[in-house]
């Protein structure tokens, strides 16, 4: 029987290495105390289960700008706290040279990405996903149910029906929801911070633009109203959609 050539035995093709831009969450470390960090995360996740969900398996960069150079840093323990909370720490930034050395000992990359517009680039072997910039998109005309997730890769997501509680709509571009938005909506997930979310009735569990996120409760002044959500100056803004 003729065996098809197994791709692993090919010798001529060069390794495929390409560039990519990634949006990563940045966690601003408040102190060098791992216990305190654990407690803060537990509190946040208890208060907002949707945030816990959002963080689960999310790559995160630790920002150390609040940690003075001379402070001792129990980095291993801090990483363990994050992993126990289901986060994937992938690097450090704004770390003092002493702390950078600690990271190197742990094979943890020190990232230079300074702010959100130049998203940090992890040196960990993340899948080299090429971001399609085609104006592709996704139009959905039926309700998106709890447990379902729809992703518009490289474009906008338009939902003409409800996005129900427990459902997730994700887009590299904008998100438009013409039924009630009751689930989670994540726009600009590839770092496009000009992305926006538009909805006719804001009842969302969580909204996010380019990695910034916010949990909503029914006491929000725009709850049940037509609204748009966008990011400016590292802040999410929710405003009424008045036409």
């Amino acid at each position: 029987m003729a065996n098809p050539r197994s791709p692993g035995t090919e010798t001529s093709a060069p390794l495929r290495v390409s560039g990519g831009v990634f949006t990563l969450s940045i966690l601003h470390l408040e102190s060098n105390n791992p216990q305190q960090l654990a407690q803060r995360i537990a509190e946040e996740h208890q208060r907002h289960p949707a945030a816990a969900d959002f963080h689960r398996h999310a790559p995160v960069v630790l920002d150390l700008s609040a940690i003075p150079e001379e402070a001792p840093l129990a980095l291993t323990e801090i990483l363990n706290v994050l992993r126990a909370a289901d986060w994937f720490p992938v690097g450090l930034r704004n770390a003092a040279p002493r702390h950078q050395a600690l990271a190197q000992d742990l094979n943890l990359p020190v990232l230079r990405g300074q702010d959100r517009n130049a998203a940090p680039q992890p040196e960990t072997p993340a899948p080299a996903q090429s971001v399609s910039t085609s104006p592709g998109g996704l139009t959905i005309d039926h309700p998106i149910r709890g447990g379902q997730r729809s992703y518009a890769r490289g474009g906008d997501l338009v939902c003409l029906a409800a996005v129900n509680a427990g459902a997730e709509v994700i887009a590299d571009g904008n998100i438009h929801v013409y039924g009630p938005l009751r689930g989670r909506a994540l726009a600009g997930v590839n770092g496009q911070d000009s992305a926006r979310i538009f909805c006719m009735s804001l009842e969302a569990e969580l909204i996010s633009v380019a990695g910034l996120y916010r949990i909503l409760e029914s006491d929000h002044p725009l709850w049940g109203k037509a609204a748009q959500i966008y990011s400016r100056d590292e802040q999410l803004h929710i405003t009424a959609l008045t036409l």
Binding site: R145, G146, G147, Q148, N164, G166
Partner: peptide, 13 residues
């Protein structure tokens, strides 16, 4: 109602 929503999603998928 939540569980029904979930099962409707599963039916569709």
């Amino acid at each position: 109602v939540r569980d029904s929503d979930r099962i409707l999603g599963i039916l569709a998928a």
